[in-house]
């Protein structure tokens, strides 16, 4: 989308990262020697069907478990198996399902405040204002801080989840299918919000998805995973126009077809909506 914003220096690098899970009877190779880099300010989409290893990769980025072999680097520094608080803060997550990602028994404000408290961001009084500011940044009124998640719609909850991730002031956001639990109109608005935030805050996105339509809207580059292997990596335009790999072609072939005329019409409608 905006290649000029992308810094040359990789903010994130994976070198020969593999992950093997042990079950009672045999080993399952979830990820096989994946190497990739993500530049600052870039949105890298990781696509693949379920079981392709994309979630395993995301979990290792987040430090939920370490790679079996290989290394991950943040700003050129090796990411250790046990993450310190500043390293946790640097890589944050937006989950797929906003119904379960917010605690039903804590207010929106309390959920956001946790991030500020844990990382000691701002002074005690300043945190309340900051929470309001975060909510406004994701397009919600500041007084939503006193509400419980049950009083919010799916799209609003996902905006709160995004605000919570932003509260940590991360460098990298891992977006794990952030729009697939939302209906189509809400999906488009949340994607637009994510795109704005990326440019405003110079964030780096690792966007995990199986929805190639979404990829086209937001990603700069695409990495295609198939059964634990990185099978293709290229710019978004290139992937869609000249997919080199057979698996990539079959994924693209599975997108519901929209003709160019329909696509043009859709853009006009979107602009109208966002204007009004």
């Amino acid at each position: 989308m905006n290649d000029a914003a992308a810094d040359i220096r990789p903010v994130l690098e994976a070198r020969n990262v593999s992950k093997v899970f042990m079950t009672a009877t045999h080993e399952v190779k979830a990820l096989n020697a994946v190497s990739l880099t993500v530049s600052r300010g870039e949105c890298l989409a990781i696509v693949g069907e379920s079981g392709s290893g994309k979630t395993t990769f995301a979990n290792m980025l987040l430090g939920i478990y370490p790679p079996s072999t290989g290394e991950l680097f943040l700003d050129g520094d090796l990411l250790p198996a046990r993450r310190t608080l500043p390293l946790r803060r640097a890589i944050q997550l937006v989950q797929q399902n906003p119904l379960s990602s917010l605690n039903p028994r804590r207010t929106v404000g309390a959920s956001l405040r946790l991030a500020l408290d844990v990382h000691d961001i701002g002074d005690r009084e300043g945190r309340k204002t900051r929470i309001g500011g975060l909510l406004e940044e994701v397009g919600l009124p500041a007084d939503f801080a006193d509400r419980y998640p049950s009083a919010l719609s799916g799209g609003q909850r996902q905006r709160v989840a995004i605000a919570r991730a932003l509260a940590c002031e991360p460098e990298i956001l891992v977006l794990d299918e952030p729009t697939s639990a939302l209906d189509v109109l809400v999906q488009a608005r949340v994607l637009q919000l994510l795109d704005e935030l990326r440019h405003r805050r110079n964030l780096t996105y690792v966007f995990i998805t199986h929805d190639l339509g979404v990829v086209r809207n937001i990603a700069d580059r695409v990495s295609v995973f198939e059964r634990g292997n990185l099978v293709e990596q290229a710019g978004t335009e290139e992937i869609f126009e000249r997919p080199a790999n057979a698996y990539t072609r079959s994924l693209i072939g599975a997108i519901p077809i929209i003709t160019d005329d329909e696509e043009a019409l859709r853009k006009k409608v979107m602009e109208k909506n966002s204007a009004g």
């Binding site: 379960s100 917010l102 991030a115 844990v118 990382h119």
Partner: peptide, 15 residues
């Protein structure tokens, strides 16, 4: 998910 979210943020086990 909210437990995972708190863990990713870096909240303590007691929290």
């Amino acid at each position: 998910g909210y437990v995972l979210a708190a863990e990713i943020i870096g909240a303590s086990r007691l929290h």
